[in-house]
Design a protein around this nucleic acid. Structure first.
Lengths: 237, 237
DNA sequence: CTCCTCAATATGTCTATACATAATAATTCT
DNA sequence: AGAATTATTATGTATAGACATATTGAGGAG
């Protein structure tokens, strides 16, 4: 049953997707193993592996050693979000970027922050608040805590001219992070800084980054009203 | 300079990341080609390719044929968001899922919808609004348009018992999509349906899916106040 | 000087083979 | 029977070699 029309891993990926959509392989079903598929498609196992691995990364199928490969029961679509540095985000809008530091102090983080920034022991932290502007208009209000145990070099910076995110990107590596997105009503302070009304719906992004299990920084970014984030599903943009 | 300590593509990825963080290869710099790196690390070129490809997918480096590989100038962090079917989202919260269709009609989409759902020609579309509930409490208000030229089978469905998203996932394949996230103030209608106050900050997700260049459906999902989306940066969750 | 063609080059992919690893199934021991 | 050990199996990964493909840059024609 060697079919010479499937030569590239992309074409194999397409054929597998077709069978899933056509319900030849319904959700939850096991699909043949790589060796059998390679024989059927008339290609090397590595090529089948490449195709199936890509589909697994996209969340369409689930793979486990020995257990085999099965079609995902609930096709979780996995979207990728590009999160640029704010300076770039502003530049992409064709506006001029400006940055203003509002406050800067070493302090003991409040419990809700400490819980995530230093869950194990009490830590010293740097608290920085700042405003990012797009052509003079408030764009993002940033409220950031930096764990000085993980990033001691940050203590030497006052972040008046250099924004904290860019400095950290350049000087403190991180291995992984977590981002929480939500909609929240503007507080009195946030409304004043962002020049909007208290209660206005704000897009809020909370970022917590880690370096090999050690928390680096927790940033809360409040976007001015009207901000949108665009992400993509599937392969092509 | 063959260094036998780099055997797996993961270890090579780590080493490349280390050099990027250590500024041995600063942002924007070209990095050696695969063949040279393979020689340096004492491994096969395919192994280096695997490592670099993963880094490129993560947005850390940029690769172009002939031009070579360079460290990304602006380290856009690329986060992956898992977007489950709402039924699963509710189930994951330990609540019981319920679905209620509110309206259903074939109609000519308003211009702002038509612009995205059928940019080329006027099209017939199906308009469905529905409410998703978690343990009886309004969870998501859905306002969806379905392009009947792309998905004619949808015209036979009334979506009273089957929710449109799940039916579409099961019957109409899509190749890619776009998701827009924003925070918006609840309108009168939205507030009434979601049992909240007009002006309350709502997390809004607009999804537009395509099948080979043909728009399938445009869905606007308004989450009840308090909803958060969590995403991950880097490899490990 | 500009446009075009062509060769050089780095990444992209495929193949065949081999071994590693995780997880299950079968078997043996207590 | 129940626990511990071993075998089996499908995926995960590494390798060397080959060819494909996109781009760039140089050289030549107009």
């Amino acid at each position: 049953m060697t079919d010479p029309q499937f030569k590239t891993w992309q074409s194999i990926q397409d054929e597998v997707l077709r069978r899933i959509h056509a319900r030849e392989w319904p959700p939850g079903a096991d699909i043949p193993n790589e060796a059998d598929l390679a024989r059927e498609f008339g290609c090397a196992r590595a090529t089948v592996n490449r195709a199936l691995r890509a589909l697994a990364e996209a969340g369409m199928i689930e793979r486990r050693r020995k257990a085999g490969t099965r079609v995902a029961l609930h096709p979780v679509s996995r979207a990728t979000v590009d999160i640029p540095v704010i300076r770039q985000e502003v530049a992409a809008l064709g506006k001029t970027y400006d940055y203003r530091r509002l406050s800067h102090a070493q302090a003991v983080p409040p419990t809700n922050v400490a819980q995530r920034l230093c869950p194990d022991a009490p830590c010293t932290a740097l608290h920085v608040t700042a405003l990012h502007l797009a052509s003079g208009v408030p764009f993002v209000f940033e409220d950031r805590w930096i764990n000085l145990d993980t990033a001691p070099a940050a203590a030497t910076q006052d972040f008046v001219t250099t924004n904290a995110n860019e400095w950290l990107l350049a000087h403190v590596p991180y291995t992984h992070g977590e981002i929480r997105l939500s909609a929240e009503a503007a507080s009195e302070d946030e409304a004043r800084v962002l020049r909007t009304d208290p209660g206005a719906p704000l897009f809020v992004m909370e970022r917590l980054t880690w370096d090999h299990g050690r928390p680096v920084t927790l940033a809360r970014l409040c976007y001015a009203p009207g901000h949108k984030i665009v992400t993509h599903l599937g392969t092509a943009p």
